[in-house]
């Protein structure tokens, strides 16, 4: 049932605690939105999920596996910026999602042709096929993020991590990206953790919304205590719970 298990997670930089006592269980296919004020450890939490950093205490395990020690194939990531390789064309960026795990990081011969064909299919699906031969710098912000998400998904990660993926986009593009992400999830259920500043976005996309905040606050030394998860909202049905009836309703309607 539990797919991602976060147990008693602490992280501090030097003597300064960032997050403390974070416990959360996530089921497979859930979309977790993470919100909170600036400096409340949202991004630290994501870096710990990514295994870019090692926690000072506690652990994160995905599907019962041992905690990861470095970023790897099982966790995909999309950052706000710098998420695609600027020196590769759009098509090669997609191919890289499959080929970087190889010894030389590339495919040759028939395998390469097959990968290029698959990449073209992917690009057609995310409607970026008309810019396949261009470099990412020529693309708009929304297109770059679409490419970044597709590239991360081509590697078939168990968990997709999004670090304020739509933070730099204008409101219209952001709505398009919401639809894009919702479509992708409808095609294949995936477990997603998304850090965002936008509460509406968090509730719109997420199944659960986790709020990071400090529970203890020292007026003399605001940095003395770390943040933890203070709320865990059920965000399905627009954030209004108990919308689905659990019991059978095939009883005669009261006359």
């Amino acid at each position: 049932m539990t797919y991602v298990r976060v147990e008693n997670l602490f992280q501090s930089y030097g003597r300064r605690p960032i997050i403390e006592r974070v416990n959360v269980d996530v089921a497979e296919g859930e979309f977790i939105s993470i919100v909170g004020a600036s400096g409340c450890g949202k991004s630290t939490f994501l870096r710990l999920m990514l295994a870019q950093e090692t926690p000072t205490r506690g652990q994160i395990s995905i599907n019962g596996a041992n905690p990861a020690r470095e970023p790897g194939l099982d966790r995909g990531i999309v950052f706000q910026r710098y998420s695609v390789f600027p020196h590769l064309t759009v098509r090669d960026n997609i191919v890289a999602g499959e080929s970087f795990r190889r010894g030389w990081g590339r495919f040759w011969g028939a395998e390469r042709r097959a990968a290029l064909a698959r990449a073209d299919e992917t690009l057609a699906r995310i409607s970026l096929d008309h810019v396949a031969d261009q470099y990412p710098a020529t693309l708009s912000g929304g297109m770059q993020q679409r490419l970044a998400i597709a590239q991360a998904l081509v590697a078939k990660p168990s968990v997709l991590l999004l670090d304020e993926p739509f933070g730099a986009l204008d409101p219209g593009t952001r709505l398009q990206m919401h639809d894009f992400l919702t479509e992708l999830r409808a095609q294949a259920a995936m477990t997603v953790f998304m850090v965002t500043h936008d509460l509406a976005e968090a509730f719109k996309l997420g199944d659960r919304v986790l709020v990071f905040d400090k529970v203890r606050w020292d007026p003399q030394d605001p940095n003395l205590h770390g943040a933890t998860i203070t709320y865990d909202f059920d965000a399905r049905h627009g954030g209004i719970p108990f919308q689905t009836l659990k019991e059978k309703t095939n009883v005669p309607y009261p006359a």
Partner: peptide, 24 residues
């Protein structure tokens, strides 16, 4: 971010060197 991204795509140190760092 690019180095981390390459790692999440399964790239080894060698692949990061020749396919990410070297071309840049």
């Amino acid at each position: 971010e690019l180095v981390v991204k390459a790692q999440t795509l399964g790239a080894s140190t060698w692949v990061i060197a020749v396919r990410v760092a070297l071309p840049q």
